[in-house]
Design a protein around this nucleic acid. Sequence first.
RNA 1: CGGGGCGUAGCGCAGCCUGGUAGCGCAUCUGGUUUGGGACCAGAGGGUCGGGUGUUCGAAUCACCCCGCCCCGACCA
Length: 612
Amino acid sequence: MANESACRKAACFIGLAQLFRTSIIRNATCHYLIAEFTAKLPAMRYSRFFAPTLRDDPADAEVISHKLLLRAGFIRRVTSGVYDFLPMGLRVLRKIEGIVREEMARAGAQELLLPMVQPSELWKKSGRWEKYGNELLRFKDRHAHESCLGPTHEEVICDLVSRELRSYKQLPMNLYQIQSKFRDEVRPRFGLMRGREFVMKDAYSFHADEESLQEEYDNMFATYQRIFTRLGLKFRAVEADTGSIGGNQSHEFHVLAESGEDLIAYCSHCDYAANVEKGISTRTIPSFDDAALHEIETPNVSSVEDVASFLKIDPSQLIKTLVYQVTGGEFDGQTVAACVYGDDSLQEIKLARALAANDVELADDAALLAIGGIKGFVGPQGLSCKILVDESLRDAVGMVAGGNNADSHVSGLSISRDIENADFVDLREVRLNDGCAHCSEGHIEHARGIEVGQVFALGQQYTKPLEVLFQDQNGKRATATMGCYGIGVSRLVAAVIEQCNDENGMIWPLSLAPFQVAIITMGKSETAMNASEKLYDDMCKQGIEVLWDDRKERPGVKFKDAELMGLPIHVVIGDRGLDADAIEIRQRTGSKQDVALSAVIDTIHGILAGAN
RNA sequence: CGGGGCGUAGCGCAGCCUGGUAGCGCAUCUGGUUUGGGACCAGAGGGUCGGGUGUUCGAAUCACCCCGCCCCGACCA
């Protein structure tokens, strides 16, 4: 396997995946492959370029990336959560895809393309036709055949692999695609950040055993770190809930940004980080004197703060009891109660997971009454329903809780003595300044994050129902083990902008910029136009991605647009600079220098080289 | 799906309360003057006022219904 064409052939055959990855990809000789993904994008004259910029912020854009993408002519909205990518936006998308492809290739994964339209049969087989919910856009074709638009591709890839996989010798393999997904989101928002249709890189790996899966999980984890590092992002990998996709291990990759929709808890000392949906921490356990159960009058005081101040006690002496209606799982349709310390918050995702439910929702007053509770004065004692209690409360004594009577609470409550059949589980949401459960030295801090990637060790959740089988070393039939790995490619466009912008617009790193260079021609003198055109041609020949602003616009307009679009290098050509043979080269990050016209291209090459 | 808001020219908005047949800024087109930071003058084009029904002599304006969009909560890349 010494020559490149042989490598390519090998890459074409699923059956040779093993050979391909071990002997070629993880070997330095594969660099030819990487060059293919960094193809240059064509240079353009602005006068012929379709990039309609807007002076004002569109009224319906909220976050900075959405505003700038619209204003700079990168995207336009078609309908809720669905966008056109204009040439500018597409160029950035392509750059990101290129980096993703290079790193996926380096990691030994192979690209393919799966269909967006998928038959209901596969989804029924995996059980998700019922489970996936309204995000799955279902429809019927002309033959009344039920289909859906792919929100993800586990079913389809398992179907494909199950047909072709025979022997353990074909494993492991990692197949990926970069493709549009459709999820009929309840609430699309923030432009590319949360669309209904979006571009995703999704990879699926198949393995003969757990060890192999773990190895690939680690490989993908490292690959993701490389990708997000190359994209120039401040990011953090965090432990994640496995959610509806299921499985046993998962990490999310979050770009840290104010506008992030997720809350990340991380340790100030060690490298522990987790989504608050699943994060754990230690709290100081307050201690109170054990006492006899005693009913106390609390007229019209029901919130934790009110009860605490009314009784002149600390909120941590209270037990907060919340009653939920469960959807899905063993407790489907039932009402359950959940208790945490008065100064803690209950994390609903943890509760849902503890119940193996799809969803939990605060119960209404009627459901509350039905289990013997009353709004505002609910306590764990004597409720006729399942009661879940946070671990931290296991040994609590001398507590105050709702009395399940109007205007009444009880004091002296002891969990172990007074609450029968309580299940102890982790329910509390990690709080700022909690102790770290992993290193005991640090404390918990919070950050907001935009989830741009997630890796899952799925196990056999899909391979079993979809019968991805192979023959193992012993000649026995075995079920493959699976991992899946997603990156929100179009979301990354927005995420990068969230991190890289100023009051004038976007600031693209050279590796992602739609154009590396803008030539800004000032005035309309023939010398300026001629010098610009010559420079433009020379740059084109040398493979520099350049946008020549040859429009008949005033200087201010051109500067504003180049800045708005965030092009990294601006070359200003005007009579003034030409006369003095001092051409101004500005970088979007702020620096400026004047160089002789003849030195412009070398200077740019220098800047481009310095960036990589 | 719950809660809030919006829909008038390509974009941003006024007009609506108190009905009388649509206006401002930017953008666009023509001509001219300008040209190193979103120019100026003159002229021009462009709107079934989201849709429907109703009230009325008359509806952008009032009422009802529908549709679309945005924001806040639960889902996810």
